[in-house]
């Protein structure tokens, strides 16, 4: 089956990408999943400086989900460019670099340094090892009392414009949006207008867990971000709404994808590609299984390739082949 997936000027070998922060540096995942057979690997969000992150407990188990407040731990841009990106490039896996910051200026600087770094240029010039830059607009905005950029169309757009301006135009820039907003389509439109090649939907859903032993919040960060199958309906709703508003904009959809059938749901809701995150923590060998199941699910429905399924749920339902049984009358039910 032809699984190729275009996102802007880049064509991925298949629509499966790992979600940011869920595949370690890639090295930890490699024993379980052949990285070169991923559509792309997304890095954890890279910040300008090294960050130790939040104290433990950082992750709590909740029904069909995980609640996390990591505090974006990471080695910082310099170490990322020196150690992580070259390693990923050598694995022959297209890499999506997730970037973060606490001011628009920080996003602009990190994108500029990224674009100028030798590793980035070699990677981009060579076999196209950098498949995109994902802008984590769910970062708190230090200039707006810590409210996340993704909460306001103007702030989200400003960040996207800053990154887009620094990155070569052949490299897709994806804005990763938070579902915790009143109208996600408005934010999506603002990001598209600011030059985003596409969107990544969704980041985690804000939540809280109580530790029954202590009767205190389970996470050191008090509240955290919910992920996993528990958020899948929220993610599907976001993808559906944004695709309806901007049908031509590529969407990397994700939130609780654990099977090929889950992935198909995202494609028909309007996603061009899909991301697998929390499932990697539970089953690090899942990507190949999910791709196989997706192919089977498409073939069983007579769909030739993933690209043909994109947005199918938005088309009018075809008339049912068998007439539905007559509705029972009320009297019969009582």
């Amino acid at each position: 089956m032809n699984l190729t997936t275009p996102i802007g000027a880049v064509t991925l070998a298949n629509p499966l990408v790992t979600a940011s922060g869920c595949g370690g540096t890639g090295r930890e995942l490699a024993p379980y999943t052949d990285l070169s057979r991923l559509g792309a690997f997304t890095t954890a969000t890279v910040m300008a400086r090294p960050r130790a992150g939040r104290p433990t407990p950082r992750i709590a188990e909740t029904p069909s989900g995980l609640l996390n407040a990591m505090g974006l731990p990471g080695p910082g841009l310099e170490a990322f460019l020196a150690r992580e990106l070259p390693w990923l490039a050598a694995q022959d896996v297209p890499t999506v670099v997730s970037v973060g910051g606490n001011t628009v200026q920080e996003f602009a600087e990190i994108a500029t340094r990224l674009a100028a770094a030798p590793a980035f240029r070699v990677a981009a010039g060579g076999t196209g090892a950098v498949a995109g830059v994902e802008v984590n607009v769910a970062c708190p905005n230090a200039e707006d009392r810590g409210r996340m950029f993704a909460a306001a169309p103007a702030a989200a757009a400003e960040v996207v414009r800053a990154v887009r301006g620094a990155i070569h135009r052949d490299i897709p820039v994806l804005a990763k949006l938070s579902p915790d907003v009143t109208d996600i389509a408005t934010i999506a439109l603002a990001c598209a207008d600011a030059g985003a090649t596409g969107l990544s939907l969704i980041n985690t859903v804000s939540g809280l867990a109580i530790d029954p032993a202590t009767l205190r919040p389970a996470l050191s960060g008090v509240s955290g971000g919910l992920s996993g199958p528990a958020v899948r309906p929220v993610a599907l709703r976001c993808v559906f709404q944004v695709h309806a508003a901007i049908p031509d904009l590529p969407i990397v959809g994700g939130g609780g994808i654990a099977t090929g059938s889950d992935a198909l749901e995202f494609l028909v809701a309007g996603a061009t590609a899909f991301s697998v995150g929390t499932t990697l923590l539970h089953d690090p060998s899942a990507p190949q299984r999910i791709l196989r199941e997706l192919e089977e699910a498409l073939a069983a429905r007579g769909v030739a390739r993933p690209a043909d399924a994109v947005g199918m749920a938005h088309r009018p339902a075809s008339p049912p082949r068998i007439a539905p049984p007559p509705r029972p009358r009320i009297e019969e039910l009582t």
Partner: peptide, 16 residues
């Protein structure tokens, strides 16, 4: 056993 989620080093939940 208290802090691990993945056990393989991808999630950074178990740090000290």
């Amino acid at each position: 056993s208290r802090t691990a989620a993945c056990g393989i080093g991808v999630c950074a939940s178990c740090v000290l």
